[in-house]
Design a protein around this nucleic acid. Structure first.
Lengths: 244, 244
DNA sequence: TAGATTGTTAATCGATTAACAATC
DNA sequence: TAGATTGTTAATCGATTAACAATC
């Protein structure tokens, strides 16, 4: 039980991911499952577009790239939305997952750092259809403050507080250089943002109650390199490869 | 669009990573550890830049955002590179991790799909210093085939085979729309590429022996949204937040 | 020696998977 | 009823963590 006054800069309870937080139902969905729900959602969308109205756990599992036991186990945390002997109604399951994730309505999002990557993110068309709406672009560089990117004016970083308050922004995206990331995160948290997607290649520290997810291009590549190195034996180190 | 015959789920789990593949040493490093090694590497780099030549597991753990028990456990898979009572030599440990990951030399990488995102990736300066070198940019759109992006000419997709063979490319990055991803992946595999970093929002199927990692912006945001939804109770759904 | 910190053990926790009873 | 497929159980596997003996 927490009587959180849902107010500005609201440092939500603690634990966040753990328990503690008031949950609508007592359902405790494992992190690994949470991370896969969006994948199922996307697969269901694709099925709907292809006019498929019913599917089995096996079919959905294949479309999502997992095995069907895992899929059924994952869905079981949400409830019983299938029919034994028949399968799942695609549109119904899609709605239930969207509701569970919380993307039945759009979340307002801001992007800070409008360099090459910020530019690409601002133009990414997938946000809108996936439950997000980019409401503002911010950059510390005054030279950018005139430009319009993806239909939105680039605004000075100083306007952060006002924008967050005005638009009730809870999610912020950091696309700045590594050096700026921590201070941008601090400002975001100060303004009331409680979820951050960090594209800058640095670890940022945030108070409890704030969630951070990190996307790091070179880390992903390095993980691939590790396995690649072990695939092609022989030859010194890299520089080898696909002698087809 | 990819009603693909499921030859394999995404990611290519076990098989590739497990046994089968010839490994230089018998060391079996857990996936979770492999995914963290690049983070340690980055933290060590940052320390070196700040002139720090020695660190304890506690200090490195803090810099990497993990706890020190996990860090020491992770490092123990590589060997014993620390000194009890003293700590780690930053430069020595950095080298050992880089060697383990396989980034003591540069891996040639190609990027397919030079839209907004491909553009941003091509310009990402972090690749070079992290063990990768972008050797070619490809796009199916002939209109782009004149342009130069990040100092490299955009080449027609048809040149894929030649480029991969010529430059011994083992790693490819897909930055195309979702619809094109599967066929691009097929062509990459055909050309001899065995590791793919996929930015397109779709699950791609690849044969065994090929590794795929996926970076999906809206999936990351949806995971944040899920937790965000549970943070601020009250109020309908989204659109809530920092009502100052 | 005394203090510090690693590398490792063992207990715990969480995630995956196969198998199958429930049931449409 | 017979066939199909879910939802759940239980076994297994892998990852995390605290604690501490080894040792600098």
């Amino acid at each position: 039980m927490n009587a959180t006054t849902p107010s500005a800069g609201g440092r939500t309870p603690a634990a966040t991911v753990d328990g503690v937080v008031t949950r609508s139902a007592g359902r405790e969905i494992p992190e690994a499952t949470v991370a896969r729900l969006p994948v199922y959602l996307r697969a269901l969308h694709a099925m709907l577009e292809r006019g498929i109205s019913t599917c089995s756990s096996e079919e959905l599992a294949v479309a999502a790239g997992v095995n069907s036991a895992k899929l059924r186990k994952d869905l079981s945390y949400l409830g019983s939305y299938g029919t034994r002997g028949v399968g799942y109604d695609v549109d119904y399951l899609r709605y239930q997952i969207a509701r569970e994730i919380g993307v039945t309505q759009d979340w307002p999002v801001i992007i800070v750092g409008i360099g090459n990557l910020g530019h690409a993110l601002a133009n990414y068309s997938g946000f809108r259809s996936r439950g997000f709406r980019v409401v503002a672009l911010l950059d510390a560089d005054p030279a950018l403050s005139e430009k319009v990117v993806a239909g939105l004016p680039v605004r000075p970083f100083a306007e952060l507080d006002a924008i967050v308050a005005e638009q009730s922004v809870a999610i912020g995206v950091i696309a700045t250089p590594a050096e700026a990331a921590q201070s941008v995160a601090d400002e975001m948290v100060g303004a009331g943002i409680t979820s951050i997607l960090n594209f800058a290649p640095s670890v940022i520290a945030v108070p409890e109650g704030v969630d951070v997810r990190k996307v790091d291009l070179s880390i992903e590549l390095q993980i691939l390199a590790y396995h690649e190195q072990r695939k092609t034996p022989s030859v010194s180190e890299p520089e080898q490869g696909a002698s087809a």
